[in-house]
Amino acid sequence: MLDYVIGKYNFWIYAVLMMIGLYAMMGKKNLVKKLIGMNIFQSAIILFYISTGVKTGGATVPILMGHAQEHGHQAIDVAGYLNPLPHVLMLTAIVVSIATTGVALAIIILIYRRYNTLEENEILKIRKDTGV
């Protein structure tokens, strides 16, 4: 059992992180905490992707050298190179996550200006009192 947990530790870490993030998004009342939860959640996924690309034993980045066409026919030592795709995908995902955070922060500012608080229950109370 322990071997199972340790052997796949990257998955366990990402699962735990994800749950923390999910809890913060659902359970916390403060909007900024929710946002932080969201960030943890996204980072967990990024870590998950990156960890799938890991190769131990001195594998390196596959850089396409000048005469790609000629090398194309040669057998490539797969163990010697990392799969770059998960990393590249995560670059995009990081951009997306930053953009989301930015939009969310802007919305939080908007909310703060309107209600002068960031506690969800207080906002609900204010809205109830004003009859909206």
């Binding site: 969201m38 996204q42 939009v103 969310a104 919305i107 939080i108 908007l110 909310i111 809205r127």
Partner: peptide, 14 residues
């Protein structure tokens, strides 16, 4: 709208 939008951000991101 901002508060609705924020909820949407959270749910949409999930």
């Amino acid at each position: 709208a901002p508060i609705a939008s924020f909820n949407y951000v959270i749910m949409g991101t999930i």
